[in-house]
Design a protein around this nucleic acid. Sequence first.
DNA 1: AAATCAAACTGATATAGATCAACTCACCGT
DNA 2: ACGGTGAGTTGATCTATATCAGTTTGATTT
Lengths: 244, 244
Amino acid sequence: MKHMETIFACPISCRNCRMSSLCIPMSLRSDELYKLDQIILRGKPLQVRQSIFRAGDPFTSIYAVRSGSVKAFRLDDDGREQVVAFYLPGEIFGWDGLADNHYQNTAVALETTSVCEIPFEQLDHLASSITSIQNYTTKLMSREIINGQRLIALLAGNSAHQRLASLLMSLSDRLALQKLSSTRFRLPMSRGDISNYLGLTVETVSRTFSYFQKMGYLRVNKKEVELLNLDALQEVIADSDVFA
Amino acid sequence: MKHMETIFACPISCRNCRMSSLCIPMSLRSDELYKLDQIILRGKPLQVRQSIFRAGDPFTSIYAVRSGSVKAFRLDDDGREQVVAFYLPGEIFGWDGLADNHYQNTAVALETTSVCEIPFEQLDHLASSITSIQNYTTKLMSREIINGQRLIALLAGNSAHQRLASLLMSLSDRLALQKLSSTRFRLPMSRGDISNYLGLTVETVSRTFSYFQKMGYLRVNKKEVELLNLDALQEVIADSDVFA
DNA sequence: AAATCAAACTGATATAGATCAACTCACCGT
DNA sequence: ACGGTGAGTTGATCTATATCAGTTTGATTT
């Protein structure tokens, strides 16, 4: 039983978290990092489909993905769900709750997932003394605005092929940041989630995967994908059919 | 010439700005408002098509629309422009520049437009002593994230009719906040801007206007619109064709 | 091993919206 | 006044993607 204790006695902290370079910490001094670490809550892992927060819940915290992945969706006026973002390890979500103190989105785990909960009140308090934290949270929100605008541009001006290629390249890039393979990975979300996010039907997503495979751009089997020709995929994205 | 001087001697300030209730000021104490007012720059009005900032410019300031209107667009990889937002009086824009100290978007005046420039460095400094300013800017950014997500949902899951009806209702609501008529107004943007923003073609936008007019939902003549049946437009938006 | 069920894939057909083409109209400069 | 230019509208056709209808696969239960 000593052994068990040893395991529990090794607490997860920002200091030993593989994601820390992507997440909050950056240029914090050691004592500052300690203070930040103190306020972060690390619950037990979430199961598939378990929610982190739901639209309408009072806003308390922002969250960082430690492992696994998360989808965030709005409930439209008529109750349909609309996926607005996927979050991978090292990424931070929940900013939508700040505007009027209630989350606008629901966030659910796409697989077994661990998140760090960062209570906003305490983060804000910390930020008032550590200006680099204030700066950083502001930049994170700005980044979230930009990512939203990137998706708007994708949805407003691109074909099904371009949309799916963009998503795949985005996932690839983000996995690379985690030092994971950017060419071989498992899609954490279902075809339904992908099609909803991209404003397409599942059939179109499925056919587009098949097409990319037929063209030799990738190999796909259910959720496993291997990108074989990144240049070709990049070309698909760039080819404004204006010149096709 | 005394007359001219009188005009110039009456400075624009947040205190006498019709938009102040929508904009930054809210619950500032008188002395705090004074400090804020001091850092705000108010240049001479911009002409149509004149830019406030361009994608790639170093980030210096956020901006509030005092009068007129602004469109913000990204330049896609392949150089096409994609409109991501319209801003009306009392609304604040420029947050996209914060993430990496360069604006991602270009912002241009859609008509003769006055903006207040709020140098971010100074605003940030002010925020460190006046916590209500810090809170408020954070909420504004969160609001911008939510607005982006609302547009994502609109683009991903709605028909041309629903998209245009949504835009019209959004403009209507925002004009109401300015105590202006919510049923009779002038669209500040061209059909091209509308179609680009909504992910449609100009022809489809034009036809949809005609259809709404034929149905008696509105009257439209070039940029002048009069909404005749808000309930019907709301119905168009709500009617998920799931049950159509 | 058979039965059940959901996710993913594929084929046939339908359609919303794009594309192509023409026309109208207001505005601008000469 | 007169051609020119660009924004907006309307009509005819085309097409990318949705819809509808199975089929396949793999996981789960019995």
